[in-house]
């Protein structure tokens, strides 16, 4: 149960932080999404994001920093097996399920739905 609480608190906290950046700087939401993915990758590299994922589960993996973290983790795994080439293959393999799903759903939605006001 406590994982659910932490998921709520950490996930909500990350989103609140992003909202502060949007409200207080000239950055647009698209900029902030990029910023947070990059920050997630950096935090993953520094080893501070993994404990957060362990603690908060989806609270850390579902917000976009988790996406950046996933890609860094993928590289870490890949270079152990493939060496240098892992730097190129690792991040996309790790993120492949998400990217492929979103592209397929996007194409499907373009056939199934119409924008409304």
């Amino acid at each position: 149960m406590s994982t659910f609480l932490w998921a709520f608190l950490v996930g909500g906290g990350l989103c609140t932080l992003a909202q502060v950046v949007v409200d207080r700087t000239p950055l647009l939401p698209a900029h902030v999404m990029v910023l947070f993915v990059v920050a997630g990758a950096a935090a993953g590299g520094l080893g501070v994001y993994e404990p957060l994922v362990k603690l908060a589960g989806a609270g850390a993996s579902i917000p976009l920093p988790g996406f950046g973290y996933t890609m860094v983790e993928g590289i870490g795994k890949a270079v152990r097996h493939e060496g240098f080439l892992g730097l190129l293959t690792g991040s996309l393999s790790a993120a492949s399920a998400g990217i492929k799903a979103v592209v397929l759903f996007g194409l499907a939605a373009s056939l199934a739905f119409h924008p409304r006001s």
């Binding site: 989103c15 609140t16 992003a18 579902i62 976009l64 759903f105 996007g106 739905f113 119409h114 924008p115």
Partner: peptide
């Protein structure tokens, strides 16, 4: 909900699906 909706991976999906629907 602002970034509460945009920052999770569901918001990432929204950012792909919305233009996919729009630019048919």
């Amino acid at each position: 909900g602002g970034m509460g909706g945009s920052l999770p991976i569901t918001g990432f999906a929204n950012s792909i699906v919305a233009p996919a629907m729009e630019y048919k």
